[in-house]
Amino acid sequence: MSDASIDPKPLTIAGKAYRSRLIIGTGKYKSYEQNARALEASGAEIVTVAVRRVNLTDPGQPKLVDFIDPRKVTYLPNTAGCFTGEDAIRTLRLAREAGGWSLVKLEVLGDRKTLYPDMLETLHAAEMLIADHFQVMVYCNDDPLMAKRLENLGAAAIMPLAAPIGSGLGIQSPINIRLIIEEAKVPVIVDAGIGTASDAAIAMELGCDAVISNTGIAEAKDPVLMASAMKRAVEAGRLAYLAGRMAKKRYADPSSPLAGLI
């Protein structure tokens, strides 16, 4: 008998299969040690990481790689903080050299207040990175036409925002996210704005292939417990999507048969 609690299909990104459909960030935690414990609780197999200058005055500071082993967990270098395509490309070339892998997450921000992506710069940078043999997962707005363009360019995954980065507001446009999913042939991963477990479950019920959470876990009062909640929410949402929810109705519909009433 097959176990109904197991997702029959793994998440596949750029040819590699993952059992977990939750990706977590590595920013905003109190320590790398807490981050490592949250990772353990989340069951995630991919973590997003940033690329920054080494500290020359104190090279002995704790290093992420000493807490989260890049041989066991997929490091997904991102371009957080880049406001031009040029900076993003430069950052990811350095990331590829530092890590030795070509799966990356591109984000080119357009505005400091909303951290919304600059889609023109993003498209341009994605094209150049793909030509340079990167496998590019792309942070984008929730516009189905932009998502399709990115896919046509050869993006490895489409990563629409649920809400502004770090806002924890949950999915603001379920209709757009749903449209992106319906049209996409590459994984759709909801990125940014997941505030709590129910937000992740809703994303997965819409049919997303995976969810990213950083602030939602890191800024919870107990990040390790929230990581565990996110893991379960992603699994529950995925199974509910596969199960196919009942139709919504405007009026009540009794669950017991009417025939045979005394």
Partner: peptide, 9 residues
């Protein structure tokens, strides 16, 4: 000279 550090989005 750069390295990987903790970062989300």
């Amino acid at each position: 000279i750069v390295q990987f550090i903790g970062g989300g989005m």
